[in-house]
Design a protein around this nucleic acid. Structure first.
Length: 268
DNA sequence: AGAAATACCCGTACGC
DNA sequence: TGCGTACGGGTATTTC
């Protein structure tokens, strides 16, 4: 599932494979994948462009071309493949870029949730996003202040990309358990020390996800191992790794949430 | 205005 | 066995 750790890993791995190559052809195989211009405009705008670099912002993969920017969001089931030496399109392929020196970049996505954009100005595209949780300017006091400015339940707020960029459902559950906070706790009731614990937990959880090359759920597997180390996510009924109490599944903000009822009581 | 609900997708796992 | 249905992921859009 494409939360920040997998996107981080994919962008990191793609950069050396793609940087310096030129786009020879662009095939859009499912119209809705491209959220911005028409397929014809898209093809015209990327043909002949050189890939200058592959970067990440929030959960978006940013492919910097010589005079435009291809931005890709994998959503849940999307994947990016860099294939050497000829490629035959497969069932779920959505976008294929034929590159120089026999390299093919494939955006494949069984559930058709993934999206791609072609934008002139990545800064403008990314303006609505909140801070990067792993950056130096995201501090405990920044988080505490931001939490005070809302009175939403903690978990939907963590998932709001305008509040904090890059945390998805798995990492929200894992971080809240690590910080011993209830997903329904109103954000403005979080104390300064609890905010510091949450800050630490979000960063630790994402760092572990990156270290383990991301998490996979359902049948979608991209090589990551973090799914073997979940504390609460999709572990309903299994013992809490801290205290042994059975993990419970709740619905918070229309989403599944997994908690230890002993470690994460809802107080006040 | 801010927050909550809904729409978008489909492979899988269930119940009957 | 086959059919119908619920589920889940993240975000843009709509509604409250």
């Amino acid at each position: 599932m494409p939360e920040l750790p997998e996107v981080e890993t994919i962008a990191r791995n793609l950069h050396p494979a793609l940087a310096g190559r030129t786009v020879r052809d662009a095939r859009l195989l499912w119209r809705n994948t491209l959220a911005a211009p028409s397929p014809a405009i898209f093809k015209r705008q990327v043909m002949g462009q050189e890939i200058r670099g592959v970067e990440r912002r929030a959960k978006f993969i940013h492919i910097r071309l010589s005079s435009t920017n291809l931005i890709i969001h994998l959503r849940m089931s999307g994947d990016l493949l860099a294939v050497i030496g000829g490629y035959e399109p497969a069932r779920h392929d959505r976008l294929i870029l034929d590159l120089s020196d026999d390299m093919t970049l494939v955006f494949t996505d069984p559930r058709k949730f993934g999206r791609a954009w072609l934008v002139d100005d990545p800064q403008t595209f990314f303006t609505r996003l909140g801070p990067e949780p792993l950056s130096d300017d995201f501090t405990p006091s920044v988080l505490f202040t931001a939490l005070q400015e809302h009175k939403r339940a903690l978990k939907p707020l963590l998932l709001d990309q305008a509040f904090l960029a890059g945390v998805g459902n798995i990492y929200a559950d894992e971080a809240l358990h690590l910080a011993q906070l209830h997903p329904r706790m109103p954000s403005n009731q979080v104390s300064e020390s609890q905010a510091a614990a949450l800050w630490q937990a979000v960063r630790e959880t994402l760092a572990e996800g990156i270290r383990r090359n991301g998490a996979s759920i359902d049948w979608v597997y991209r090589g990551g191992q973090y799914q073997d180390h979940f504390r609460v996510y999709q572990r309903t009924g299994q013992p809490c790794p801290v205290c042994g109490t059975p993990i419970q599944r709740l619905t918070v903000g229309q989403r599944g949430a997994h908690i230890c009822p002993a470690c994460q009581p809802l107080t006040g």
